[in-house]
């Protein structure tokens, strides 16, 4: 199906709202699960948007900006997953892979901004030194406007202007390639989880990773909440254990100090 000019504009406006939120991280409406749902709503296929949101959110579960790496952009990935699935009539899981180049394009644009926005710092410093609050506030709006507009432009070009070439590309893809993209969509969460592990995993936490894995493999359930509760049980046990340990250590230290004092007195 085709995306109309009006739908393209609405997607661009939505990309600006979600993009600004992505920049500030305020409401977290920049996560794929929300981005896909609203994009689906704009295109008149809410259900497909929600399904795509669930799948894309999982693919991005571990791809977080924490820990120093900027992941492919979730706003563009969410929008383009729904757009590609809608315009080419393919499964959202296959569309995730095709949306990634757009997500990476936005990622690189943001990386350029992260470096080049240092150019504003001398002006900020000058206004700070002058105590010029008005100018300082105004200057803060500039990067936000640049980022917001970039999201709108990139989303409009990707969703509306590129739909023809995209359709040609998808139509020319042989079955093994589309099936490969579908498989990749299912495996992709592994990348995010590996990134989380890189930041979080220490030898002492390995038992908990295995615990969660084994429980989830053995017990059938529809979401991760039960396992989260198992984790919470261990977290609570460990919390009280650490608190007790802290108290004991403090007492031992106290005793040591007292003993030393006593020993010196005895010596004299």
């Amino acid at each position: 199906m085709e995306i109309t000019f009006i739908q393209g504009l609405l997607i661009a406006i939505w990309a600006m709202i979600a993009g600004l939120d992505c920049w500030l991280q305020a409401f977290f409406i920049f996560r794929p699960i929300i981005v896909c749902t609203i994009t689906g709503l704009i295109l008149g296929d809410l259900k497909m948007g929600v399904i795509a949101g669930g799948l894309t959110e999982l693919a991005f579960a571990g791809l977080t900006p924490a820990g120093g790496t900027q992941p492919p952009n979730t706003v563009l990935c969410g929008i383009m997953t729904v757009v590609v699935a809608y315009t080419n009539n393919i499964a959202p899981q296959t569309a995730i892979g095709l949306s990634l180049p757009f997500a990476m394009l936005m990622q690189y644009i943001l990386l350029i901004y992260y470096s080049s926005f240092s150019l504003f710092l001398p002006s900020f410093d000058r206004y700070a030194e002058e105590g010029n609050a008005k100018a300082f506030k105004r200057l803060n709006l500039v990067p936000m406007v640049i980022v917001t507009l970039s999201f709108g432009i990139v989303a409009f070009l990707s969703a509306y202007a590129a739909q023809g070439p995209m359709r040609t590309l998808v139509n020319s893809m042989p079955h093994w390639l589309t099936h490969g993209f579908e498989l990749a969509g299912g495996i992709l969460p592994a990348v995010g989880f590996a990134m989380l592990l890189k930041v979080m995993l220490k030898a002492r936490y390995l038992p908990y990773l295995l615990l969660g894995f084994v429980v989830a493999s053995m017990i059938p359930f529809s979401n991760v909440l039960p396992v989260a509760l198992v984790g919470a049980v261990f977290a609570m046990i460990e919390f009280y254990h650490s608190k007790d340990e802290e108290k004991t250590m403090a007492k031992i230290k106290e005793l040591e100090v007292n003993n030393q004092g006593g020993g010196m007195n005895d010596g004299i």
């Binding site: 571990g62 969460p189 979080m200 990773l209 969660g212 894995f213 989260a228 919470a232």
Partner: peptide
Amino acid sequence: ILGLTVIGALI
């Protein structure tokens, strides 16, 4: 602890 248990389950 909580986070890694959940990641194990998510994998």
